[in-house]
């Protein structure tokens, strides 16, 4: 149990560091701002209590806000997907998944299942985030383009990361 908690803390720090030091420094275009830190929320075990997911989302958003000078922005978006994640999993997972307490990853649920899950969650997060950031519906289509292109890159990076780092658990 303690080892598991330490494992998750290390994973949390690793994902946040990758986001802040690598992803945030890719100055590709103003339309491409991938946010991969939601991977931490996405890959929490399916059986995690919903209230715990919401609290962890809050903490993740708080850390991101602290380091990117955007008070409340990442917090609001991450709490939102932390809340709807539970409803999606109830709809998309069987009872056994909940009982076994597995993580919703590529190795456990398959690439297609994970892609659908990641795309829906990333789109929700980015829609919420980018429209909240501009704080209005002026430039609606420009913001929509920003959401779609950033989501594409986020899902791409998240999936590549999954294929690279979670292969071990499949072999076990």
């Amino acid at each position: 149990m303690v080892i598991e908690i330490i494992n998750y803390i290390v994973r949390f720090l690793l994902i946040i560091l990758i986001q802040l030091l690598v992803i945030d420094n890719i100055d590709l275009s103003t339309y491409v701002n991938p946010y991969i830190y939601i991977l931490f929320i996405l890959t929490l075990p399916i059986s995690t209590k919903p209230w715990l997911v919401v609290i962890l989302s809050f903490l993740t958003g708080l850390v991101m806000d602290t380091f990117s000078s955007t008070p409340g922005l990442h917090m609001a978006a991450t709490i939102f997907i932390g809340y709807i994640r539970n409803f999606y999993l109830m709809f998309a997972c069987s009872k056994e998944d909940f009982d076994n307490g597995i993580e919703p990853t590529v190795s456990k649920k398959g690439i297609v299942w994970f892609l659908v899950y990641a795309i829906i969650m990333t789109l929700m997060h980015h829609l919420f985030l980018f429209y909240l950031e501009i704080y209005s519906f002026r430039d609606f289509f420009r913001t929509m383009f920003r959401v779609l292109s950033s989501s594409l890159f986020s899902v791409l990076i998240i999936s590549i990361g999954q294929l690279l780092f979670y292969r071990n658990s499949k072999a076990r």
Partner: peptide
């Protein structure tokens, strides 16, 4: 209780965001 927790935290982040956007008081 999950919804109430979600609601309170979301409200909190909106207040922080609103305060910042409106008054530029960082």
């Amino acid at each position: 209780y999950t919804f109430i927790l979600f609601f309170i935290l979301e409200l909190f982040s909106f207040v922080v965001l609103y305060q910042y956007n409106n008054y530029q008081r960082a």
